[in-house]
């Protein structure tokens, strides 16, 4: 990365391999190899046989050094692993966590080849367009509270998206219980939270968040066209992925710290205020069947309360919620 910094500093002129190798005390072969890897990462570097190298164009990448420059966090994304492509950032984060990576360790990728949604569903993950991040958390909380981290992630993602979004208010981000973020009724962000325990104790949680950022309408796969959206589609202009990533990491840290200090009950009001499903008709697909009713509210533990025709009320902990109107 020092070579990239050097090329950036002198982007107005060619600098020779010898000059770079002297200044950074690396071999000329190392310079040449590094230029090659920068190129395959999408950097345009002009090479002239007698004059050397010149950086002409940079891809929009989420390079850790750039990202951490403006980042206001204490522990989230302080250890940041950046990958050009991976199968799934959650998988990489779980491996790091199993080897003892500290709380806050974060994995981001420009592209995922097997981006995972919940229950083995896939998450469409083209390169350099969206944000894919997985954060390792190690809270000391009782097991039954652990699933509430899904809701913590949803609050953070919704707030972060709200910080960078400038489009029409009616298309602003809203939470759909438990963890989807919708804009104009279409999904812009999803979360996959995975936990691992050591016997009776929680070992770690990986909070994986995918946000569709600069995905264009025409690039959405047909099967997602009606149900998915992006910040670009909703707001009509491109959004800096770096700004969004920083906002996301800051919101995750702040929301998580409050959750750890005060528990979910204190956050539930804020969660409810970020959602617009209350009072609306919903269809909930449960493992035992389908129910329809009115989304009534959130219990203090995060369960969704749905009132059924006839006055009965159902507490939902696992199920897919569909808004009917």
């Amino acid at each position: 990365m020092e070579i990239l910094g050097f090329l950036r500093k002198h982007h107005e002129r060619f600098i020779s391999g010898a000059e770079i190798s002297r200044a950074l005390r690396v071999s000329r072969t190392a310079v040449w190899k590094h230029v090659g890897s920068l190129r395959s990462a999408g950097f345009s570097i002009e090479a002239h046989p007698s004059q050397g190298y010149r950086l002409t164009e940079e891809p929009d990448l989420l390079l850790p050094a750039d990202l951490q420059e403006g980042l206001q966090t204490r522990f989230v994304a302080r250890e940041l692993h950046h990958l050009l492509s991976t199968d799934s950032t959650n998988r990489v984060a779980r491996d790091l966590a199993a080897k003892g990576a500290p709380e806050g360790t974060t994995v981001i990728a420009e592209a995922q080849t097997r981006g995972r949604g919940r229950l083995g569903r896939t998450w469409f993950s083209p390169p350099r367009t969206n944000l894919y991040a997985s954060i390792i958390l190690r809270p000391r909380i009782p097991m039954p509270s652990v699933p509430q981290l899904t809701l913590v992630g949803a609050v953070a993602a919704c707030r972060a998206i709200g910080r960078v979004y400038n489009g029409p208010g009616e298309l602003g981000p809203r939470i759909k219980w438990p963890n989807d973020i919708l804009m104009g009724g279409r999904k812009v962000s999803g979360t996959l939270v995975e936990a691992a325990s050591l016997g009776e104790m929680l070992d770690y949680v990986v909070l994986g968040i995918g946000v569709n950022v600069n995905l264009e309408e025409k690039d959405l796969p047909t099967e997602l066209a009606a149900t998915a959206t992006s910040l670009l589609i909703a707001g009509g202009r491109k959004v800096s992925r770096k700004t969004l990533a920083c906002a996301l990491f800051e919101e995750i840290e702040a929301t998580y710290e409050r959750f750890r200090a005060e528990g979910f009950a204190k956050l539930s009001g804020e969660y409810a205020a970020l959602s617009d499903i209350w009072g609306r008709q919903v269809r909930v697909t449960l493992s035992e069947g389908v129910i329809e009713g009115t989304a009534e509210g959130l219990d203090s533990d995060g369960a969704l309360r749905v009132s059924l025709a006839g006055g009965a009320s159902e507490r939902i902990l696992a199920g897919d919620v569909q808004l009917l109107r």
Partner: peptide
């Protein structure tokens, strides 16, 4: 197990 979209493995004690 799954709860609120979190996947939680139950291990052999």
């Amino acid at each position: 197990l799954e709860s609120m979209k979190m996947e939680m493995p139950v291990e052999a004690p």
